[in-house]
């Protein structure tokens, strides 16, 4: 069963084609890496899938809903965490959880259970009343991810979630991603770190608005005769014509 299906999805801004006829399918519970150099069209593609931007042409079904007509439904069934920090620094840990729980319409009972569960999993029980801006960055990112999936969405979109985080914390962050995936939440992640690309089930690489390659990391490495994903990425990104 696919949770994301796109067919020749295109977005143009005037004469500029930011996303050029991309077609792919993502299965339920899959960890899907969405790679590309800056300006390759990743963010625009992701915005269309989140229901924030209406495509120029092509088709896209996200979580069973059409991106043209049912963006409100899509928003209810996805989670989102951006490269910029997604929580409010001047709110306490539990206040942030309650806010997003409230926005996604969780019942009081479910919200209380979720809060306890989440704080327990993240080992943040002692920090319940701490203002988020005084937490270390790694903890913030983990908290932000957990809050992004507080409503058990079908898909969670992560836009460079581990920017500026040290390797150890990144590793821990990926453990959370695996847990979410085990709970059948599809993870759609963009990243600049090629070691993270190796953790994905499948990886797509965008160049100049088109999906140039899409497969499992091991197949990609064989196809492009590379030792690691960095090699694959370099040989593809070199073809890019347009800059940043």
């Amino acid at each position: 069963m696919y949770v994301i299906e796109t067919d020749r999805l295109t977005k143009q801004f005037g004469n500029f084609t930011a996303v050029d006829q991309i077609s792919f399918k993502v299965s339920s519970g899959e960890i899907f890496g969405f790679l590309g150099a800056n300006g390759a069209g990743k963010t625009t593609a992701m915005r269309m899938l989140c229901g924030l931007s209406i495509p120029t042409s092509g088709k896209a079904i996200v979580a069973g809903f059409d991106v043209y007509k049912e963006s409100e439904q899509i928003k209810k069934h996805i989670g989102y965490m951006s490269q910029k920090f997604s929580l409010y620094g001047d709110l306490k840990v539990w206040e942030n959880i309650r806010l997003f729980g409230g926005i996604y319409g969780l019942s009081r009972k479910r919200l209380a259970d979720k809060t306890d569960e989440l704080l327990h999993t993240l080992d943040l029980e002692k920090e319940r009343n701490t203002l988020v801006h005084s937490l270390p960055l790694g903890w913030k990112q983990k908290l932000a991810f957990s809050v992004a999936i507080i409503h058990d969405p079908k898909i969670v979109f992560l836009d460079e979630p581990t920017g500026g985080v040290d390797p150890v914390t990144r590793r821990q962050f990926w453990e959370l991603i695996y847990e979410a995936s085990a709970r059948d939440i599809t993870v759609f992640v963009t990243t600049h770190y090629m070691d993270e690309a190796e953790y994905c089930n499948r990886v797509s690489i965008m160049v100049d608005g088109r999906v140039e390659a899409l497969d499992t990391p091991s197949v990609l490495k064989t196809t492009y005769h590379a030792d690691n994903m960095n090699g694959v990425f370099q040989s593809l990104a070199r073809k890019a014509i347009r800059g940043e």
């Binding site: 409100e72 928003k75 989102y80 965490m81 490269q83 997604s86 319409g105």
Partner: peptide
């Protein structure tokens, strides 16, 4: 801060 994006992606109109 970037929190606007998160709000816009949420079902909150």
């Amino acid at each position: 801060l970037g929190t606007m994006e998160v709000l816009l992606v949420s079902p909150f109109k």
